[in-house]
Amino acid sequence: MQRVNMIMAESPGLITICLLGYLLSAECTVFLDHENANKILNRPKRYNSGKLEEFVQGNLERECMEEKCSFEEAREVFENTERTTEFWKQYVDGDQCESNPCLNGGSCKDDINSYECWCPFGFEGKNCELDVTCNIKNGRCEQFCKNSADNKVVCSCTEGYRLAENQKSCEPAVPFPCGRVSVSQTSKLTRAETVFPDVDYVNSTEAETILDNITQSTQSFNDFTRVVGGEDAKPGQFPWQVVLNGKVDAFCGGSIVNEKWIVTAAHCVETGVKITVVAGEHNIEETEHTEQKRNVIRIIPHHNYNAAINKYNHDIALLELDEPLVLNSYVTPICIADKEYTNIFLKFGSGYVSGWGRVFHKGRSALVLQYLRVPLVDRATCLRSTKFTIYNNMFCAGFHEGGRDSCQGDSGGPHVTEVEGTSFLTGIISWGEECAMKGKYGIYTKVSRYVNWIKEKTKLT
């Protein structure tokens, strides 16, 4: 034993070699072989497995989906700052455009905790909710729209109204504003409101030439003092309507412009014939205590009207009353817009006519005020429907199939267009061939041609 100890002390290297040989010859039971080890760690190889990531292109799944990435790591994937920024906006807080917040056709661009709407022409605001041009839906104005110097929408209202708090709607500024039905039992019968379409306001006024200088022999019209197929109006439903009495009662109609003036057809009036105007009328054979009678003290036909040349060209006249009318729910003026808007309103496509005229061709006159909704007829169809001249200051309205029309005794009465609950004068009943005849239409004086003249002559002093 002493000898062994001496050998170990003198030859430590020998001992180490012996131990190493023993270990190498022993069977290893701690580690699995290569094949079995792979069965336990069965993990798919990654895209760049075996390579240094710093030297390969980034992978979106590896960089940002398996674990949260930084902007720089995302930049490695896209290799483009702009594309990385677009991805980053949604990656950080989701897609803010998912709810489609942009209105009126706006395009949404996502941002971090926010979004941006790219608005089409005519709109602005956070969600493109603000109209900035009158060309689109009248700028959301209830009545009139004008573009300011910086191309912003400025709404306005006709006389007797003021802008509401929203700067879009119009509200009454006087007790009985024009064009409004205020009798409670008839307010439910107000005709369907007309909503502004998209309009090209630059070209809204037709490029028409008034044929002022045409000389033409007097034409022989049949029954051209021209509501057939209409309905009984309720008291106060058309408070701007008046009836004219002269040699015979209810020979023509008219509309209240203001307390002192009536507008009617020029062919209705004769110099030297006494005319009485009755406002607030409903049943011409009954006294309903809503009527107001006034005498006409002055007749002003349009300066281009000449019955000797043509009885229905420039067929418009103004009547001055001896005493002002007292405005109330049964006696209310009709609204008159400017030339541009009167023309736009007419193009809405349908209007209402009213009167006490004959209820059928050569038949009896109506006792109760009649009204009828009539569609506008395109000019080409209008011209083809008659052998008589249709001037540019006239328009056609009615039904091709016949059966409904204005008729004798309705002449001078109103053709009105309702705009968001307020009625505007767009025409004056003038003439036609018979009444409600198939293929024939009622012919009306186009008020847009005469609004400046009306307003100039009827100013209240």
Rank of each mutant, 00 (worst) to 15 (best):
V4M: 09
T16E: 02
T16Q: 06
I17E: 00
L20M: 06
G21W: 09
G21M: 10
G21R: 03
Y22H: 06
Y22R: 02
A26D: 01
C28D: 01
D33M: 06
K39C: 06
P44C: 12
N48I: 04
K51D: 09
E54I: 05
F55Y: 08
Q57K: 05
L60Y: 14
E67N: 06
K68E: 15
S70E: 15
S70C: 06
F71A: 15
E73T: 10
R75Q: 03
N80A: 09
T81E: 07
R83Q: 13
W88G: 15
W88M: 15
Q90D: 12
D93L: 12
D93F: 09
P101Y: 10
L103N: 12
L103K: 06
L103P: 08
N104Y: 11
G105I: 02
K109Q: 09
K109H: 12
I112K: 15
S114G: 14
E116H: 06
C117P: 02
W118I: 08
F123D: 07
E124R: 04
G125W: 02
G125A: 04
L130G: 09
L130K: 07
D131Q: 07
T133A: 13
C134I: 02
N135A: 14
K137D: 14
C141K: 00
E142G: 04
Q143S: 00
F144S: 00
K146Q: 11
D150V: 07
K152I: 11
V154G: 04
C155E: 00
T158L: 06
E159K: 04
R162I: 07
E165Y: 07
N166I: 01
Q167F: 12
K168H: 11
E171M: 09
E171L: 12
E171G: 05
P172L: 03
A173F: 08
V174L: 07
P177G: 03
G179E: 00
V181A: 08
S184I: 13
S184N: 13
Q185C: 11
Q185T: 09
Q185K: 08
K188Q: 11
R191K: 12
R191P: 14
T194Q: 03
Y201V: 10
Y201G: 07
N203V: 04
A207W: 12
A207M: 06
A207C: 09
E208K: 11
T215C: 08
Q216F: 08
Q219H: 09
N222L: 09
D223E: 07
R226C: 14
V227A: 12
V227W: 12
V228Y: 10
G230T: 07
E231S: 05
E231I: 11
D232Y: 08
A233H: 04
Q237I: 08
F238H: 04
V242S: 00
V248R: 11
G254S: 01
G254T: 00
I256G: 00
N258G: 03
W261V: 01
I262Y: 01
A266N: 02
A266F: 02
T276N: 07
V278A: 06
H282R: 06
H282V: 10
E285M: 08
T287E: 11
T287N: 14
T290H: 11
K293W: 07
R294E: 00
N295Q: 03
P301L: 12
H302V: 01
N304G: 05
A308Q: 11
K311S: 08
H314V: 03
I316T: 00
A317V: 04
E320S: 02
L321Y: 00
V326T: 04
L327P: 03
N328F: 01
Y330I: 03
T332Q: 04
T332G: 07
I334M: 00
I336G: 00
D338A: 08
N343D: 15
L346E: 12
L346I: 12
F348K: 03
G349L: 06
G349V: 02
S350P: 11
S350M: 11
G351D: 01
G351C: 05
S354G: 15
S354Q: 13
G357H: 13
F360Y: 06
K362M: 13
G363N: 09
R364E: 07
A366Y: 09
V368I: 15
L369I: 13
Q370M: 07
V374L: 06
V374Q: 09
A380H: 07
T389Q: 10
A397T: 06
G398M: 11
E401K: 15
E401R: 13
G402T: 15
G403R: 05
S411K: 13
G413Q: 12
V416S: 10
T417V: 13
E420H: 03
T422P: 01
L425C: 01
T426N: 01
C435H: 05
A436F: 09
A436L: 10
A436Y: 09
G439H: 08
K440M: 07
V447L: 13
Y450H: 03
V451H: 08
N452D: 14
N452A: 10
K457P: 01
